[in-house]
Design a protein around this nucleic acid. Structure first.
Length: 268
DNA sequence: CCTATGACCTGAACGC
DNA sequence: TGCGTTCAGGTCATAG
């Protein structure tokens, strides 16, 4: 599903929606909406007749600023936001805009939408750490927050409260780029290790944004097409294939119930 | 507080 | 053909 580069590509694809008015909100079956919208959210229909003034991204979350409210969208594992493109199955939310249609489809329903007054906080937005592409973020800061932790480097990179936007693909790729073994503990990592991991993650994700993200199956741009960064991945889903640096077969292990791919020779 | 584990969903791919 | 199992880009609640 969408990680930072994919969500950023979606945000860029929503540019033409800015300035448009939301004329009508249409929702799918109740039990689907219930699992997508938490109980503390205002009903999504409350955003009707408001103008979309801007759309921000932090980590994997989008925040749509309206006249009176703000609307949070998280795409979960299989969420797709389509603007003026052919509808897909499992369309749960439809926003009829003044000059187009925005549709949200999400087969697995792990996504998350929340509407609040501008004066009220969006709960999950507030829990996020700094965006991984925030120029003010440093490896020293991350080192400071994790130097006593027994958690693995992979697990820490996935912690959205520590640094927001890195998911399973880019965690694996960033660890490979930095030459860090995924099971290294926080307490074993130096500030320089963190500088290498962070700058590696930043370079890879910026490159991915240029290619509109990574599409394996579900992820789609707002026009329904896929991204193309999957052809540039070096270790993710490459178990048994030769490491691009040294030729050693790529290993696969499980951490926190999720697959990790790495080079046992280059990462230590 | 910290860490580990399952739960939440559907669908695609694979083995028998 | 069909049926069962496993896995998937994420996050949260709960139990130690």
């Amino acid at each position: 599903m969408p990680e930072l580069p994919e969500v950023e590509s979606v945000r860029q694809g929503l540019h033409d929606c800015i300035g448009q008015k939301i004329n009508q909100v249409k929702l799918g079956p109740d039990h689907c909406i219930k699992s997508l919208v938490p109980s503390q959210s205002l009903p999504l229909e409350f955003c009707e007749n408001q103008k979309i003034n801007s759309i921000e991204r932090r980590g994997k979350f989008l925040r749509i600023l309206l006249d009176e409210h703000h609307l949070l969208a998280h795409l979960g594992m299989s969420g797709v936001l389509l603007y003026n493109a052919e509808a897909r199955p499992h369309t749960h939310i439809t926003l009829e805009l003044s000059q187009g249609i925005l549709r949200y489809s999400d087969p697995r329903r792990f996504g998350h939408w929340e509407l609040q007054k501008l004066t009220m906080p969006l709960s999950s937005w507030q829990k996020l750490g700094p965006d991984a592409l925030d120029p003010d973020l440093s490896g020293q800061q991350l080192h400071g927050h994790t130097q006593n932790s027994k958690r693995s480097a992979k697990d820490l990179l996935l912690d959205q409260g520590l640094v927001a936007g890195i998911g399973n693909i880019y965690a694996c790729e960033a660890l490979f780029g930095a030459g860090i073994h995924p099971t290294r503990t926080g307490m074993s990592l130096s500030a320089d290790d963190w500088n290498r991991m962070l700058s590696s993650a930043v370079v890879i994700m910026q490159e991915s944004i240029k290619h509109k993200g990574t599409t394996f199956s579900d992820y789609r741009l707002t026009n329904g097409k896929g991204g193309s960064f999957q052809t540039f991945l070096k270790v993710f889903q490459k178990e048994g294939l030769p490491c691009p640096n040294c030729g050693t077969p790529i290993s696969k292990i499980t951490q926190q119930n999720r697959s990790t791919f790495f080079c046992p020779q280059c990462q230590c």
